[in-house]
């Protein structure tokens, strides 16, 4: 009995929700804009945007949508430009260091606008980022190498103050990714430190790039800072043997063998040709005399 009832309920629910889906499909939906702000180590500011919408109880990414990005404060509004989302519904805008943006007292405000169309509603999203800075200092004492990072912001008087209790990631930059070497939290002065692993390979001078990040903070966005130092292990790479089976030039024994064989045979060919010429000359002489 109970089983039957449960079954009925399930049936009704399924049918209903299915119906619901069909009914909803034609109405325009409101997409969601997720925007994040990051300050990269070279001073570039990056606004990354993801555009998605709910459809059939699933979140789907919206590709090829045009988004407008605006930087603003109370006084001015600057249109930074349009970006188009990729196949994953993502887009990003990089603002090169040195670009002047409208700012308020402690940071920037960005606005992302989506114009809408027949299937999607118009929508916008704004983010505010308080400007924060990262300072890295590198110390080496008795073979122990320490990275110290300090997260700071400017207070109202323009003085530097540490930001306490935020997570900080320590990374080493690699070709395809950042390799995390540790996570720490800032202390009351806004600083934290980590020991650099002794076995991290660097380039042939031992140079590594240390990238310290304060990830995805609601107030500050992402802040990243990097520094080069020759703390890595030296890269010694072998110079390839120049003559081998797989190289452009053949191994010497091969060249010699081939040369010996070829000269051997072709000398005989030449010899035969000389013979024929000699026969010819002899014949000619005989005819003359």
């Amino acid at each position: 009995m109970i089983l039957k009832k449960i079954f009925q309920i399930i049936l009704v629910l399924t049918v209903f929700s299915g119906f619901n889906r069909i009914a909803r499909a034609d109405e325009p939906v409101t997409p969601r804009i997720t925007a994040t702000y990051a300050k990269l180590s070279d001073g570039t500011k990056r606004i990354s945007i993801a555009l998605s919408a709910r459809q059939n109880d699933k979140r789907v990414n919206i590709p090829d949508a045009a988004l407008q990005i605006i930087a603003q404060n109370e006084a001015i509004k600057t249109i930074l430009g349009n970006v188009i989302t990729n196949q994953q519904g993502k887009a990003s805008l990089d603002i090169e260091p040195g670009t002047t943006l409208p700012r308020d007292q402690d940071g920037y405000t960005f606005m992302v606008l989506f114009g809408g169309n027949t299937k999607l509603d118009k929508t916008s999203q704004s983010i505010h980022a308080t400007e924060a800075f990262l300072e890295i200092s590198l110390n080496e004492k008795d073979t122990i190498k320490t990275i110290t990072a300090r997260v700071i912001k400017h207070n109202e008087k323009g003085e530097k103050v540490g930001i306490p209790d935020v997570p900080v990631e320590f990374n080493v930059k690699r070709l395809f990714c950042l390799y995390p070497i540790g996570n720490e939290k800032t202390d009351s002065l806004g600083s934290c430190s980590l020991e650099f692993p002794s076995t991290m390979p660097g380039d042939k001078n031992g140079k590594v790039t240390i990238v310290v990040r304060m990830p995805d903070n609601e107030t500050y966005g992402t802040v990243e800072e990097s520094k080069d130092i020759n703390w890595g292990t030296l890269l010694v790479y072998k110079v390839k043997p120049i003559r081998g089976l797989g190289d452009t030039d053949a191994p010497l024994w091969m060249v010699y063998t081939l040369l010996v064989l070829l000269t051997g045979v072709w000398l005989h060919v030449v010899y035969i040709i000389v013979l024929v010429i000699r026969i010819n000359i002899i014949g000619k002489k005989a005819i003359k005399s």
Binding site: Y271, I272, L275, V276, I279, N280, I282, G283, A286, I287
Partner: peptide, 17 residues
């Protein structure tokens, strides 16, 4: 046939070849 005329020397050379 170049100028082959079965001269002994010619024949010798040809055989050697």
């Amino acid at each position: 046939a170049v100028t082959y005329h079965e001269l002994p020397l010619q024949k010798k050379l040809l055989n050697r070849g």
